[in-house]
Amino acid sequence: MTRLQRSPWLRWLCTLAAAGALVVVLFPVYAVIVGSFESTQTLFSGTYYWLPHAPTLDNYRTVVNAQSGNVLTSLIVGVGTALLSLVVAVPAAYALSKYRLRLTVVLVSSLLVCQIVPSIVLATSLFVVFHWTHLLNSYPGLIIADGTYAIPFSILVLRAFFFSLPNEVMQAARVDGASEWQTFRRIVVPLARSAVITVAVFAFLNGWGDFIFALTVLNGSGIQPITLGIYTYLGNYSTDWGAVMASAAFAMVPAGVLLVVAQRYIATGLTAGSVKG
C-alpha cells in the first residue's frame, strides 16, 4: 500500500476505478432526473437516450397536481417518525447507559432482537391490531408502525453515545441540586445534540421512505405518502414512466438535501450499524 501511494500513475488508476464505481452507483439517480424531463414519446420510443433528448416540464406538471398532497403526507410522517423516535429513544438510551437497572441487559438484548424482526411480520399483525384500536388509515398508526424501523436503532446508537459522556457531568448537576429530569433535560440532551440529530435524520428518512406499512396499515383512501403514490403509477402492462420518474425525483429530494446538509450525521449513522427495511 505504501508503494502504491508513491506512484502517481497508480494513484490516478485508483481514481479511475473509483470513478467507474461511482458511475454505476449514481447512474440510476441520473436516469431518474433525466427521465423526469423527457416526453412520453421519448420514454416510449424504444430507444434509451443517454443525454436529455427533448426536455419538457410536462411530467412535473402532472405530478405537482397529483402528488403534492402526498409529498406533504410523507413530510408529516417523516417528521412524526423522527419526533416519536426521539421522545421514546433519548430518555431510554440515557436510562440504559447511565442508570444501573436490573433489566438493562434484557432490554438491550431485546432491542437487538427487535431489529431482526421483518416488517412484514409486524405489518400483518398491526393491520388487525390497528383495525381493533381504530388506528388504521391514521397518521398516528402509520407513525407508530414506522417507528419500528427507527426506535431500536435510535436507542442503541444514542446509548453508545451516552457511554462516552463522563459521569462527572451529571454528578456536577446533581450536586448543584438539579433533579434527575432537569439533569437530563438541561445538561444531557444538549450535550447529545449531534447524536440526537443523527438519529432524527435516520428516523425521518425511514418515515419518508416507508412503503410496506403505508401499503398495509393505510389500506384505503385518505392518507397517501409519496412512496404509495409512485406505486399506484406502476401498471401491470403499461406504466406512465414520465410521472413515475418525476415523482421518484421528488421522493429522492430529502436524501439529496440531507446528504449535503447533514453529511457528517449520515456517515455517523451508517457506520453505527444502520438498519433499514
Binding site: L4, Q5, V25, F211, T227, L259, L270, G277
Partner: peptide, 23 residues
C-alpha cells in the same frame, strides 16, 4: 489507498442506501 477524489467518492458512494427502497 490515497488517490485524488477519494473523499468525494466515499461520501457519494452511500447514495443508494439513502433512497426509499420502492424508488
Amino acid at each position: 489507498l490515497r488517490f485524488p477524489g477519494r473523499t468525494l467518492a466515499r461520501s457519494l458512494i452511500i447514495v443508494p442506501w439513502l433512497l426509499p427502497l420502492i424508488v
